[in-house]
C-alpha cells in the first residue's frame, strides 16, 4: 500500500521527494506557499523565480512556470515579468544573501517603487549551499566559515532587519511581515496576505520566513528547533511589520506601521 502524502495541489508530485536536506526550512516555507497558492486559486497565473543558493533547488518544485535566475537577481527578473505581464502573479523566492546582500539594491528599489510583486525570503543566518559562510543575518558571535572565531559586531555590524527596512521605504499600500517555519499556519496567512496584495494590485509585498539549516548549524533536531524558536526570535521579531493602509482601515484594529524597538 502506498500512502500519497497530502501535498499542496500547486506542488509538482513528479519532483518529490524534494532535494532539500532533512530538517531544512525551505520545504516548510514552500509548503505554506503551496497551500497559500491553492487557497487563493492562483496557480495558473503564478510565475515563480528562485535565486542561487539552496533556493535554487526549487527550480522544478511547483506546477508553475519557474525561472532560476542569478544570485540576487530574482527580484529584478520578476519585476521585469510583472511590468510586461501584469496579469501574472510574480513571486521572487530567495535566501538571505539573495535578498540582503547581493540582491539588496534590487530589494530596496523594488520596494521603493512599490512593484506589485511578492518577495519571499528564507532566513537561516548563513550562506548554506556554498558551505556556511556569513550572511547579513548571521547572529552576533555565531561561527561560520568566514567568521571562524564568531561574528564580531564591531567589525561587521548586526543582523539585517529586512522586513523593517522594507516597511520603512515602501508606500502605504505595501505589505511586510516576518513569519517562521515554527508556525506554519501563521506563515501561510502572511503569505496569503502578501499574495493578496499583488492579486488586488495594491503594491509590494515582502515576507521573511525564519528558517532552519541544521546542516550548517550542525544541530540535531532538538537544538535546531531551539535555535529557531528561542534564539533567532531574539534578533528577528515575528509579526506583521506593515499592512496596507486600506486593509488597516477596513479591519478597524490598531494595526498599521509599527517600528521595531
Amino acid at each position: 500500500m502506498t500512502v500519497v502524502p497530502n501535498m499542496p495541489k500547486a506542488w509538482r508530485i513528479e519532483t518529490k521527494p524534494h532535494k532539500f536536506c532533512p530538517g531544512c526550512g525551505h520545504g516548510l516555507v514552500l509548503k505554506a506557499l503551496g497551500e497559500a497558492i491553492d487557497e487563493l486559486g492562483v496557480q495558473e497565473r503564478v510565475v515563480f523565480g528562485c535565486d542561487i543558493g539552496c533556493s535554487l533547488l526549487s527550480w522544478d518544485f511547483f506546477n508553475a512556470d519557474t525561472v532560476q535566475t542569478h544570485h540576487g537577481r530574482t527580484t529584478p527578473v520578476m519585476t521585469g515579468i510583472k511590468r510586461a505581464r501584469p496579469d501574472r502573479i510574480c513571486i521572487a523566492y530567495m535566501g538571505d544573501g539573495g535578498g540582503y546582500a547581493i540582491g539588496a539594491q534590487h530589494l530596496v528599489n523594488a520596494a521603493t517603487r512599490n512593484e506589485k510583486i511578492t518577495v519571499i525570503l528564507a532566513n537561516n543566518c548563513n550562506y548554506a549551499m556554498t558551505g556556511g559562510q556569513m550572511a547579513p543575518t548571521t547572529l552576533p558571535e555565531m561561527k561560520t566559515e568566514t567568521t571562524p572565531y564568531g561574528r564580531d559586531v564591531e567589525e561587521t555590524g548586526y543582523p539585517t532587519q529586512g522586513p523593517e527596512m522594507v516597511a520603512a521605504i515602501t508606500g502605504e499600500t505595501a505589505y511586510s511581515a516576518r513569519g517562521t517555519v515554527a508556525n506554519l499556519r501563521q506563515l501561510k496567512n502572511y503569505l496569503k496576505k502578501a499574495l493578496q496584495n499583488q492579486i488586488e494590485e495594491r503594491g509590494f509585498s515582502f515576507v521573511e520566513a525564519l528558517s532552519a539549516c541544521p546542516t550548517n548549524w550542525s544541530t540535531n533536531a532538538k537544538d535546531t528547533w531551539h535555535f529557531l524558536e528561542e534564539t533567532m526570535p531574539k534578533y528577528f521579531k515575528i509579526g506583521e511589520v506593515k499592512v496596507p493602509v486600506k486593509e488597516a482601515k477596513e479591519s478597524n484594529t490598531s494595526q498599521g506601521n509599527h517600528t521595531k524597538q
Binding site: K19, L57, M129, G131
Partner: peptide
C-alpha cells in the same frame, strides 16, 4: 540538482 553543493542525503 542544479548545483553541486552543500546537501545532506537523508
Amino acid at each position: 540538482l542544479g548545483e553541486t553543493g552543500n546537501l545532506l542525503q537523508p
